[in-house]
Amino acid sequence: MSQVWLISGSPGCGKTNWILNTFKNYSGNCGYLRLGGYSEINLEQAINSKIDFAFLKDQIHNLLDLSISNSISEKDKENILIIIEFPQFFIPKSQGINGVDLRIINELEKYNFQPNRYLHFGRDPELSIKDTLDFRAIESISLDLKKHIWDPASLNTFWFELVNGAYGDVYRAKALMNLPDGRYILFNWIVSQQGSQYQTLNQVAPLNGRPERCSEIVIQGKNLNFESIKSTIHNCLLNDAVLDHHQTSLRNSQLQTARR
């Protein structure tokens, strides 16, 4: 029997980590879908980023991507836990399924999902309320960084400047970044926490060219200087010649280690 849960909450409240832990503790099949949510007056949603799915898929190998139609076979449907995540600034007026935003209900119809549980961060006591911030005004920007690879030291500087307010008042930032040695790193920051979370994912790209996997940055805050963020990021990304230099050197170093 399949279960379909809806999970919502404000940006950075911990939805994705909660979902990861739930999947890890579940022995059957797992399926995931992220909806973009809806902007409200002065509260802009970020684009529907692929970061969360890429992160969860890295951690749960057999995770099914429900944004792709027909991704669930009849066999998969047995004993599957489907979690649908969406960002939502306001606390639902009613408890349980009755509190789901009608726009979300309508959106779910095309997927043919019938939710049987709905939890919202900040309302339901089984979810943490540590980072459920009450945003009054928020703007969002995001950049698709697919196939881009960062100079590691520049990334360090950029992230430090970003979360310390050099490009506007950032409340929330998350990103999946590629490094020249093939590492794939999740960056996560919320204004209510001290310091950023960094997690190196399991996937390692070959030392040959640019990986095709998802790479994005999503920033939410106030008075964000998009042009300055874009130009700084541009200055941090490696061009083909520099990337080739790095990767050749890393390949040679791996060869030497293997020969020893």
Binding site: D151, S154, T157, T232, N235, C236, L238
Partner: peptide, 9 residues
Amino acid sequence: YPSQLAEKR
């Protein structure tokens, strides 16, 4: 320069 970004700046 410690980074590409610092070098460009």
